[in-house]
């Protein structure tokens, strides 16, 4: 109950700030309309934002998050050159397939960020996940092996260790 209330307040503040950034602050009608709409949004969808209690080590987690963002941007630039190379190559060197990888992460938010990162990094696309068994199905544009462990090392571990630092 306590966490739900806190979650609603955080969602209200975030929604109101985004509204103010999107509109001209000078107009009083926009400010009032944004206030009302942010309250409605917080009432309808507010309780899903924060679902766990406060964790320790906030500074360490923020540093890990910043490192993660830079690592992610670098992987993303590599992914773009990889796709550009494949698309320009006259022979179209692809060997596609759907493989399975395992993950150690348990929180919903952590798994969401891991799967989104996998989609945006070189040669991989998340197709589905299997939350009870902790397995992710990944479409690879260039399959290296059919072995679950080896694919986990190649695809998932790039981000998993640092996401463990951030989320748990």
């Amino acid at each position: 109950m306590k966490i739900e209330m806190k979650s609603r307040i955080v969602v209200f503040v975030l929604a109101y700030l985004v509204w103010l950034a999107l509109t001209h602050i000078g107009d009083i009608q926009e400010v009032i309309a944004g206030f009302i709409i942010s309250i409605v949004v917080a009432l309808i969808a507010g309780k899903f934002f924060i679902t766990t209690k406060k964790q320790k080590g906030t500074v360490r987690r923020i540093i890990a998050a910043v490192i993660y963002i830079f690592k992610f941007l670098w992987e993303m630039i590599k992914a773009n050159f990889h796709v550009a190379y494949i698309v320009i190559h006259p022979m179209l060197p692809i060997k596609p397939g759907i493989v399975k990888i395992r993950t150690r992460l348990s929180k919903d938010s952590a798994i969401t960020i891991l799967t989104n990162s996998i989609t945006l990094t070189p040669g991989t696309l998340t197709v589905d996940l299997n939350p009870d068994k902790k397995e992710i199905y990944v479409h690879c544009i260039d399959v290296i092996s059919a072995d679950v462990e080896e694919n986990t090392r190649n695809i998932g571990n790039r981000f998993e260790s640092i996401l463990t630092e951030v989320f748990e």
Binding site: A79, V83, L120, H139
Partner: peptide, 19 residues
């Protein structure tokens, strides 16, 4: 245009168009 099926096309579309 060039890649063969919907999954490979999604790879190109998602990564390059996002970036």
């Amino acid at each position: 245009v060039r890649l063969p099926d919907v999954y490979n096309r999604l790879q190109a579309a998602t990564k390059c168009v996002t970036f």
